[in-house]
Computed example of a mutant assay.
Amino acid sequence: MDLFEKINWRHRLAKEIEQAFIKSTVTIFVFDQDNIIAFGRVVGDGRYYAMLNVVVDPEYQGKGVGKYLVNTLNGQLENYHFVNLSAAPGGDNFHENLGMEKANHCFYPASGPKTVPTTLPAR
């Protein structure tokens, strides 16, 4: 859970994270010794996919780990029509360097009973 602390996933419950990985179409974890330093996952139906939670420990960013994750996840998908990647702010250059194009036609619920808070209370 150290990586989750580093990336501010403190508000997520371990059981919810575990279930998300289990229910994903493809999940990849990258280790350094016994420590998870990166992970990524894809959910999909065989033709349409969403690449989610491509996360690299800040200490390992800029070393090709994120590129490896995105390329490996994408390489696991066959005969797809569309892959959507949801990214955190600030990752535009990274994704554009991988040949991805930014789309400006995404909609999502602004709030509701199932919305996860995107900001954390001060510690």
Rank of each mutant, 00 (worst) to 15 (best):
F107D: 11
Y48K: 15
A87T: 06
L98C: 11
Q33W: 00
Y68I: 10
A103G: 12
C106I: 11
Q76R: 03
K102E: 01
Y68G: 10
H105T: 14
M100S: 07
H95S: 03
R41P: 00
A87C: 05
H81M: 11
D32H: 12
A38V: 13
M100K: 08
N104D: 07
A103N: 03
F94I: 14
Y108K: 14
A103V: 12
L69A: 07
D92A: 13
R41H: 00
N53I: 06
N84S: 14
T72A: 15
D34P: 02
Q61P: 10
D92H: 07
N71R: 15
N104K: 09
L73D: 04
I37F: 03
Q33T: 01
V54G: 06
G64V: 08
P58T: 02
E96M: 05
A88M: 02
I37G: 04
G90V: 13
G46S: 12
E78M: 05
M100V: 01
D32R: 15
D34S: 09
K67D: 12
Q61Y: 11
Y68Q: 13
T72F: 04
T72L: 02
G62P: 05
Y80C: 10
V56L: 10
Q76F: 05
V55K: 00
V56W: 07
F107T: 13
G46C: 06
G44F: 08
Y80H: 11
E101F: 00
N79I: 04
E101K: 04
P109I: 14
A103W: 06
N84M: 10
V70F: 07
K67Y: 12
F107P: 07
D45H: 03
P89D: 15
V55C: 01
P58A: 12
N79P: 04
I37Q: 09
V65Y: 00
I37Y: 02
E101Y: 04
G44T: 12
R47G: 15
L77Q: 01
G75R: 13
I36T: 14
P58S: 07
Q61H: 07
G40R: 04
N84Y: 10
Y48F: 15
F82S: 06
V55D: 03
C106L: 13
Y108D: 14
R41L: 03
N71I: 06
P89A: 10
F107S: 06
I37T: 09
N104I: 06
R47H: 14
E59C: 01
L77W: 05
M100N: 02
L69K: 10
E59A: 09
D32I: 14
D34L: 04
A88H: 03
G75H: 09
V42D: 00
N97V: 08
I37R: 05
A87F: 08
L85C: 11
C106H: 08
E101L: 11
Y80F: 12
E78N: 09
G64L: 04
Q33P: 01
V42S: 02
